[in-house]
Amino acid sequence: MTRGEIPMGSAGGVTDNVPSIGAGFMATLRRDLLIAVRHRGELANPLMFFLMVITMVPLGISPEAAVLSALAPGMIWVVALLATLLSLDSLFRSDFEDGALEQLLMSPQPLYFQVLAKVFVHWLITGVPLTLMAPVLGVMLSLPSAGYWPLILSLLIGTATLSLIGAIGAALTVALRKGGLLLSLIIMPLYVPVLIFGASGVRSAIEGFPYLGTMAVLGAFLALAIVLAPLAAAGALRISING
């Protein structure tokens, strides 16, 4: 950030050189997005995983449309969850290795908003692409037509919650050399409610029932996760760095 962009509304008047919370949030957001764009190849990895595992389903179970359409909502949700889980290990890893994470912890910015910015970027580069790709996979698994919009909506809200909850696990395991599998083990039980409501919302829409109630529950999970998950992740990061 250049000197000219430092905003006026800093807290207390004591630390005049400290950018406001919003500016700090935007700076981390911009930095992480820039890093993501510069490593364009990695962006496609969760999507390729998503596509490949979905391809395994007809190969492993049955190519019949009737079987696949019954499996489609749950299968797409489970694989999207796994793809998110696999991408989470890198959330803080490279920042931890090059020392940027320590700078983040030492900075006068509240860690809550810094973590929120990082998780937001993670959702933008994994959750949103996964959501956009899901209808294509829905066609491949012959998802009934009533299920498409609920699938998109539930994944859009649900993957944000998955990223937020996952950030806690990523923060807890960032200092461990082999944190990847452990991250999945400790976070997967916490994903259970999101999966249940996400997949059941799609299923009830296909069966002709109203699905907005389950979407509202997903939204409530998201609201709760926005408030609490960055706090837990920030505490976990402090423990991982300081020991």
């Binding site: 806690i168 400790i186 916490l190 409610p193």
Partner: peptide
């Protein structure tokens, strides 16, 4: 921390 997060469940 993990135990506290788990109490949400």
């Amino acid at each position: 921390i993990l135990a506290l997060v788990g109490t949400v469940n």
